Simulated scan of single mutants.
Amino acid sequence: MAIKLKSPWEIERMREAGALLTEVVEEVGRHVEPGITTKELDRIAYEAIKKRKAKPAFLGLYGFPATLCTSVNEVVVHGIPSEEPLKEGDILSVDVGLIYGGFAADMARTFPVGRVSPEAERLIRDTEAAFFEGLKYLRPGFRIGDVAHAVQTFLESRGYGVVREFVGHGG
């Protein structure tokens, strides 16, 4: 399989899409607090994406009914927003994508809901650090498998496991 290199113009459009998505995730994050529903966060994300003249990438994809994937606590990935209010101490993973200028951007971030346990704080901190460990290998000469291996090795060294069914889903 040949690698298709992007032109400088395409790279700039991708950068713009990513910057807009960062703004959307930050806007959603400002609303994460006990009592809000993930359905309401989904509405906030939808409006934030539309305000930026972009299109939600997940809405309708393979029949997915929302703009956000919202995974609360032990839900691993691709949770569907609901009317269940978030509670103090929950952890919320938000996965969102948008399409801007013909280019897709996709990102996930985990937020504490109010005050969380030391274990939850550690999980959030360690998974963020694992991301940066993987990022070290995201450059010429390395493969996606090198990124995934770095993430997995880092997390396993801290006592976490990997959900094998999702290996290849970004790490």
Rank of each mutant, 00 (worst) to 15 (best):
T67I: 08
L138Q: 07
V162Q: 04
Y46N: 05
F132H: 10
L20E: 04
R52W: 00
R43I: 07
L41G: 01
Y160G: 05
R52A: 12
V76D: 13
G35C: 13
E47K: 13
I144H: 09
P34G: 15
R125W: 15
S157Y: 12
V147S: 02
Y46F: 14
L138I: 06
G18K: 12
A148C: 07
C69Q: 09
W9G: 13
P140I: 05
F154Y: 15
D106P: 00
A19Y: 10
V96Y: 00
A48V: 00
E10T: 14
G18W: 02
A120T: 13
E16V: 15
R15E: 14
L86C: 01
S71E: 08
A129M: 02
V147G: 00
E23G: 05
D95N: 04
Y100S: 13
V76P: 00
V76H: 11
R30L: 04
T37C: 13
E27D: 08
I91R: 02
S71I: 05
G170A: 11
G102E: 04
A45G: 11
E12N: 10
V32W: 13
L5Y: 14
R122A: 10
L123A: 12
V113D: 04
Y137P: 03
G29P: 03
R13S: 10
E47Y: 10
T67L: 04
E27N: 01
H78L: 10
E165L: 14
D42G: 05
F58E: 07
D106S: 07
P34M: 12
F64E: 02
D42I: 01
T70D: 01
R158Q: 05
A54F: 06
I144A: 07
F111C: 01
Y62P: 01
S71C: 06
E16W: 14
V75W: 06
L155Q: 12
E23Y: 00
T37M: 11
K53G: 06
V96K: 01
K50E: 06
H169E: 08
V94P: 03
R43S: 11
G35P: 09
P112W: 09
K55Y: 11
T153P: 00
I80Y: 05
Y100H: 15
T38V: 07
T153I: 03
L123T: 09
I36K: 09
L41D: 04
L59S: 08
K53D: 15
L138H: 10
E40R: 06
E84S: 02
K87V: 09
E27S: 00
G170C: 02
K50H: 06
R115E: 15
G161M: 06
A120R: 14
A150P: 01
D106F: 12
R43E: 11
I49Q: 05
F166K: 09
F166R: 09
D42L: 03
P81F: 12
F58I: 08
P34W: 15
G97D: 04
